[in-house]
């Protein structure tokens, strides 16, 4: 597989603020890649660099095999972007804005008629797809820009993005303000894109969304990538909570590698263990005779919170 996005050691400063401090990111073609991190971690800055809106200070950035700053216009024909906070022109209708984006994406390119789902294409938009998406997202395209609510503004950008068949979708917290029903529509749109072999970079704070959509995730903190891999990989790196009632007092648990927060009260044992060290712990427990056992795998929330909290702790230490 080729890489759709490949960033290595990306630096970007605004004055004295180091927004990106050696960020790495690799997104394979055809995957949905989650892009996570606390507020202010540098996700949007990285996305703006990918879109050629900001110029990298240093580091290698390759988008669909090309340079996003130099080849911005050519690349943008193959990209659809949805920002987290969509602003619209107050006196243009939603329908006009959707069509404008479609046409601008495909400006200067010959009309492709009858491709991609059989819909009639004018500019970059598949008309059938456009109509279908407007219906699925329950958007009124005749309203003027300033009369849309937050969620409806997002829908305008989402329809414009998914009505065009591009190679890469760059979505920066695209579902902020959407209701759960529309969130579901959004998720099926992403899945359909993936089924067509398209690549999606999804920056999001909605963990259920990330969990159900993303093949792999990268977690950013303070402008650096701190973790990258499939969700299963990441889970593997975290701790499983174990509660057990034993037949006899436990023996030697405290000395096993990877055991944390051991709490023994008589025959009752509670502990956390690095998931890859689970085997040894279970063996030790069964040696004492197990009466009951609950083992809880880490939730995605715990996984992220661990990364996010580390930052808050680090900040706390730095502040004190």
């Amino acid at each position: 597989m080729t890489k759709a996005i490949s960033i290595a050691g990306l630096h970007k400063s605004f004055g004295r603020t180091h927004a990106l401090d050696g960020l790495d990111l690799a997104v394979e073609t055809g995957e949905v890649h989650g892009f996570l991190g606390p507020n202010g971690a540098g996700k949007s800055t990285a996305i703006r660099v990918l879109l050629g809106l900001l110029r990298a200070d240093s580091g290698g950035v390759s988008l669909l095999g090309r340079n996003p700053w130099q080849d911005a216009v050519e690349l943008h024909r193959r990209i659809a972007y949805v920002p987290g906070d969509v602003t619209l022109w107050r006196n243009l209708s939603g329908g006009e804005i959707i069509d404008l984006y479609g046409k601008l994406r495909n400006e200067g390119r010959a009309k492709r008629v009858g491709q991609g789902g059989g819909g009639r294409r004018t500019g970059g938009l598949d008309r059938t797809k456009r109509a279908e998406l407007i219906e699925r997202f329950e958007l009124d395209p005749t309203k003027k820009g300033h009369t849309y609510s937050k969620g409806n503004r997002q829908k305008v950008a989402l329809v414009a993005a998914f009505a065009s068949d591009v190679d890469l979708y760059v979505l920066d917290e695209p579902t902020s303000g959407l209701d759960p029903l529309m969130e579901e529509v959004f998720q099926s749109c992403v899945q359909e894109a993936r089924d067509r072999g398209r690549t999606v970079l999804l920056s999001s704070h909605i963990l259920s969304e990330v969990e159900s959509l993303c093949d792999r995730v990268s977690i950013v903190r303070k402008g650096r990538t701190v973790e990258s891999g499939s969700l299963a990989d990441l889970r593997h790196l975290t701790r499983t909570s174990v509660t057990a009632e034993l037949a006899a007092a436990p023996n030697g648990l405290a000395h096993l590698p990877g055991v944390h927060g051991l709490d023994v009260q008589g025959l009752r044992v509670r502990l956390q263990v690095d998931t890859d060290k689970l085997d040894a712990v279970l063996r030790s427990l069964t040696a004492s005779g197990v009466r009951s056992l609950t083992s809880t795998p880490p939730t995605l929330e715990e996984l992220f919170l661990r990364h996010y909290e580390d930052e808050h702790l680090a900040n706390g230490v730095a502040a004190s």
Partner: peptide, 21 residues
């Protein structure tokens, strides 16, 4: 009052948008 706009748009270029604005 604000009137509704067309459900589809004919704006096709950045120049047309600038003119409209």
């Amino acid at each position: 009052a604000t009137r509704p706009g067309p459900p589809e748009g004919g704006l096709a270029t950045a120049g047309a948008l600038a003119w409209r604005l």
